[in-house]
Design a protein around this nucleic acid. Structure first.
Length: 658
DNA sequence: TCCGTTACGTA
DNA sequence: CGTACGTAACGGAC
């Protein structure tokens, strides 16, 4: 057994199991420590669904406050058995982002995650309940490498973050001679690998009349980068084992550090258990994945590539080789006679460019009628569709033709979910089914989408208690038309205004978005405030609360920190977060009713299902009924739509509101 | 290779 | 004083 000693605010011991004999002491540790931190190290990346052929679990680690045990589960047999026994024996486990480790051990070793989620804290969830802000928002952040320096040990956090990069570099330094490089009379370099030429010597090459004969060295681990180091580092590498051993110790300590920091209101409302439950649902959605229509996706990729190349060739005629390069586009536009003035649209001011740079976004290009701008717009659009959506789906299919998104049930500051990876679900175009046709229900199933009608506006009405808005919803009036009528503008502008005001925006934002004069936008906002005085009052109230306490509490007892000087955003946080919790709450109800097996994705105010065709009507009706939210003084109805097999088909229904 | 900036898709 | 995200391309810095 190898023992590594280190120090993190006190001595720390990492025991590395090397032989079956060592497992005896490990088992004693498990018996003595009913609560343990847990972590795994893999071959790298997040493609756990590729196991076991293209993905593997290398180490499993357990630890308490100051002692960790590292098991070489890559070696299989007794080490995997010991890990399974320890997981089963533990009374309480903690892990940072538990879903990932659970996917890994379920896929690689067939471990049933269900008994484990009953007793496993996720430190990422706890950290979010303490401070939901990311690092760039002025918060602590939610990654282990951010939590450790803040809560545990500043130096250790930085050291651990750097260590795997350093290990990669050290592995690259280990080289062996793989052959000779030599030059012929034409001064061409020739390569001779010993694997192709056994027993080759320098003299043999000289005899062939070659010169500049040099030994040819290559790294014995191949090219090792930050991404590939995980799969290549030897299992007995001390720096790697130290890194691996620290993580369960951190996870163990973080639980004890974070619990007391969670607000009393959040505790009283049971948010900890609640978030762990929704985490289990999204875990199952991740694992089920979504079936990809392979042929449809492949055909679209081919078409889009042709389209893209065609328009890129046109743009190149005017000197734009890189359609993503603002510099090139500006030069080319000037060359065709376009004049940029001091009134030209500029990008947001930044450190490098305090005045902002000339913008070349879609609105700028659209305003210039020329074959070049048309080509750039069309090439960009085709490239974006191909790369961001179609190829992500196509290239990430597992052996069963399914893709697995990463779902973070508790991501945004407001607790909104994020869906990343193979299905960037929150960015898929919603205007038509063109992209969403990639994703299909099971054979014999159809896709059903159930979404909340006007979720955020209804929440705004309920939270603010604005009588006019509540009455409008109760009577089924058209809220957007009401706002529009108050200022005598088109419904579209009324709609924009409704959302903007609820999101903390103002007349300037409305003017920008609607393309109307500021004075007109002011009149529309004034009209809104006259029509719904309760909403404006509520915004003020929440902003004042934020100013006084530095945070607000949502209807579910969630504490959201509001940045100084940004108190106007408090109303949006309250509405957005409550809306998220409403969606999550109904997802939990659906789970209890046995619907998780059919659930595919949760996208803010919509849940996508794959239902057996012959039961689709009945199941959609049931699920819609379950999703209808009527608690805490908030009423949000849910509406279901049933399409054909693809998700996209739902968007193309005749009666669809999409 | 990393990171900031810009652009663009969604609720 | 719109907010909340994710992804891709570019271009400069290391």
């Amino acid at each position: 057994m190898k023992v590594i000693r280190s120090n993190v605010r006190g001595p720390v011991t990492i025991n590395v199991v090397e032989t079956e004999r060592d497992l005896l002491s490990f088992r004693q540790f498990v018996v003595d420590n009913p609560h343990m931190g847990f972590d795994t190290e893999t071959t790298g990346g997040f493609n756990w669904w590729d196991a076991p052929d293209n993905y593997g679990c290398r180490l499993a680690q357990f630890g308490n406050h100051d002692t960790a045990w590292v098991l070489p589960v890559e070696l299989g047999g007794p080490y995997v058995k010991a890990m399974k026994w320890a997981l089963k024996t533990a009374k309480r486990l903690s892990a940072q982002n538990r879903g990932f480790d659970l996917h890994v051990i379920e896929e690689c070793f067939g471990v049933d995650p269900y008994p484990l989620v009953q007793k496993m804290w996720d430190t990422k969830i706890l950290a979010h309940l303490v401070d939901s802000r990311g690092r760039d928002q002025g918060g602590i952040g939610l990654k282990l490498e951010e939590l450790v320096p803040h809560y545990i040990d500043a130096d250790m956090g930085a050291k651990v973050k750097k260590s795997m990069t350093e290990i990669a570099q050290s592995l690259n330094a280990v080289k062996e001679v793989v052959g000779f490089k030599a030059r012929n009379k034409d001064k061409e370099t020739l390569e001779f690998r010993f694997s192709d030429h056994p027993g080759l010597t320098k003299e043999d090459l000289k005899a062939q009349g070659l010169s500049y004969i040099r030994e040819w060295k290559e790294g014995i681990y191949g090219k090792v980068t930050k991404d590939t180091v995980w799969g290549k580092v030897p299992l007995d590498h001390e720096g790697y084992l130290l890194y691996a051993g620290m993580d369960p110790i951190f996870a163990f300590r973080l639980v004890n550090i974070l619990f007391p920091l969670i607000s009393r209101k959040s505790l009283a409302r049971g948010l900890i258990g609640w978030e762990h439950q929704i985490n289990w649902i999204t875990y199952q959605l991740e694992r089920t994945g979504y079936l990809v229509d392979e042929e449809y996706t492949r055909l679209r990729i081919g078409e889009l590539k042709l389209e893209e190349d065609k328009w890129k060739a046109v743009a190149a005629k005017w000197g734009v080789d890189l359609i993503g390069s603002s510099d090139q586009i500006i030069k080319a536009l000037e060359a065709i006679g376009h004049k940029f003035t001091k009134d030209s649209k500029r990008t947001k001011p930044s450190k490098e460019h305090p005045q902002g740079q000339l913008s070349t976004d879609d609105s700028v290009l659209q305003s210039i009628d020329h074959p070049l701008t048309e080509a750039i717009i069309k090439a960009k659009s085709a490239q974006k569709k191909r790369k961001t959506w179609f190829e992500a789906a196509y290239n990430n299919r597992d052996r069963n033709g399914r893709v697995h998104a990463s779902i973070n049930a508790l991501q945004a500051r407001t607790a909104r979910m994020s869906i990343t990876g193979a299905i960037a679900a929150q960015t898929l175009p919603s205007g038509s089914g063109y992209v969403r046709h990639c994703f299909v229900a099971e054979p014999g199933h159809v896709t059903a989408c159930i979404d909340f009608a006007n979720q955020e506006l209804r929440v705004a009405a309920a939270l603010s208690g604005d009588r006019r808005m509540l009455a409008a919803f109760a009577k089924g009036e058209d809220l957007h038309q009401l706002t529009a009528d108050a200022a005598g503008v088109p419904r579209k502008i009324g709609k924009m205004c409704n959302f903007l005001v609820a999101y903390g925006g103002g007349a300037k934002a409305l003017a920008d978005q609607a393309g109307i004069p500021l004075a007109e936008a002011k009149a529309v906002v004034d009209g809104f405030n006259r029509t719904y005085p309760g909403v404006a009052a509520y915004a003020k109230k929440r902003a004042a609360e934020a100013k006084q306490h530095g945070c607000i509490y949502t209807i579910t007892g969630r504490r959201l920190i509001v940045d100084l000087g940004h108190e106007y955003a408090a109303i949006n946080f309250a509405i957005q977060s409550a809306s998220r919790d409403i969606t999550v709450s109904t997802a939990l109800d659906l789970d209890k009713a046995g619907f998780t097996q059919w659930m595919r994705l949760i996208v803010h105010d919509e849940i996508v299902f794959s239902f057996p065709k012959e039961r689709a009507e009945e199941l959609t009706a049931q699920a819609s009924k379950i999703m209808e939210f009527n608690k805490m003084g908030i009423f949000v109805p849910a509406e279901g739509e049933i399409g054909e097999q693809s998700w996209g088909s739902v968007l193309e229904l005749e009666e669809s509101k999409h």
